Simulated assay, not measured.
Amino acid sequence: MPDLLIHFDQPEHFALAIAALIFAYTAFSLVGFGTALIASGPLAMLMPVARVISLLALLDCIGASQRGWRACHAIALPELKRLLPGMLLGQILGVTLLTHLPAAWMALLLGGFILSQGIKGLRQPAAPQPAPSAIRNALVGGVLGGLFGSGGFMYAAYLERALADRDAFRATQAVLIALSTAWRLLLCLLAGSLDTSVALAALCLLPTLFIGQWLGQHLDLRLTRPQLTQVLNALLLLAGISLIWRHVAWF
């Protein structure tokens, strides 16, 4: 096991990270995003936050590429072209910020971001929301993807409104995530946060991806979307609180 996973004197942290990754890729198999939101908090207990982003980018790229390849016939190319430029530009800004922020601030920002997503997801919308902007969602999703490793929910929020066909939504989202993570990997490599140790860690943790995908395929017909959403948002709350509590002592 690579030295990047450092806290083996606390096996409960490692067990939590493994469980979080399996759940994250189960959710990813069902809805096409959410891996960093779920798994980044527990993984930050084992490695620096900047390396967490690179590690999850590697795993996400593999998972999304598999998903997109299986459904390539249903991709909505016009919507993909609308989102792609903003996503690329946003990630450049996000990765630049990632490499210049102190580790403690990164951990607190990441915890706050995860916590905010959980709170937002658990609140019932007071009124129907207006149709999202492709440019805005792509840029914000790109920045969040480069900075926190998770901008996929911004792309999904746009695509779910723009595409009535569920197969087209899932296929287009998968390809966009695959391209997003591949671009993020290149930026992380140029920024110096992706190296051999990160690749080895991803290889060691790859079984969690396959287990999660298998579970997701079997849960797809048994778990309703509202049920999955409630579980996901509750875990986001716990993950965000845990990460903030752990790193607030740094200050």
Rank of each mutant, 00 (worst) to 15 (best):
F23C: 10
H100I: 12
I53N: 01
R70K: 13
A239N: 09
L147C: 03
F33W: 06
D195S: 12
A164C: 13
G111W: 01
A104M: 04
L77D: 10
L37W: 07
A64E: 05
K120S: 15
T26D: 02
L98K: 02
M45W: 04
R70E: 12
G240R: 04
L189M: 09
I177N: 00
V49S: 04
G212S: 12
G141L: 07
L88E: 05
A162P: 02
A64C: 11
A36M: 06
G118H: 03
L189F: 14
L186H: 03
H7Y: 12
C204Y: 13
L203S: 14
R161N: 07
I18A: 08
I177T: 00
L206I: 06
V31C: 01
P226K: 09
L46Q: 14
P128R: 10
M1K: 09
D220Y: 14
I22L: 04
H100E: 08
S133N: 13
F153R: 02
L77H: 14
S133K: 07
G145Q: 12
F153L: 13
L122Q: 02
R225Y: 11
I6K: 11
D60T: 10
Y158K: 00
Y155F: 12
T181Q: 13
P125K: 09
L209I: 11
L59A: 05
G68P: 05
A36N: 04
D220R: 15
L223C: 07
L237I: 15
I75P: 05
P102N: 12
C204N: 01
A76H: 15
I18H: 02
L189V: 06
A126G: 13
A178G: 11
S40H: 02
R123I: 08
A71T: 13
I241M: 06
G118W: 00
P85I: 06
D3P: 01
W105M: 09
F113G: 01
G118N: 04
G192P: 03
F8M: 08
Q10R: 14
A107Q: 03
I114K: 06
V31F: 05
Y158A: 06
I6S: 12
R123N: 02
R161G: 00
L185C: 08
Y25N: 01
F148K: 05
M1I: 11
G63W: 00
T196A: 15
C188K: 03
G142Y: 02
I211W: 03
Y155K: 14
S197F: 00
L209M: 12
I114H: 04
A174M: 08
H13F: 12
L97K: 01
L5E: 07
A202L: 10
Y155M: 14
P78A: 13
L97E: 04
M45G: 06
G68S: 08
M87Q: 11
L200Q: 13
L97G: 05
G68L: 06
K120F: 14
L176F: 00
L159E: 07
Q117G: 13
Q217C: 11
G86V: 04
R67N: 15
A107C: 05
L59Q: 00
F153S: 05
G94H: 03
A19E: 03
T26P: 05
T96Q: 08
L83D: 00
S116V: 04
D165G: 11
G41N: 03
L200G: 01
G216E: 00
V49T: 14
A191Q: 06
P78M: 10
A156N: 03
L200W: 14
T172F: 08
L16H: 01
P2S: 12
A104I: 00
L77K: 15
S65R: 09
P128I: 09
L219Y: 03
L16I: 11
A15N: 10
L30I: 09
P78Q: 11
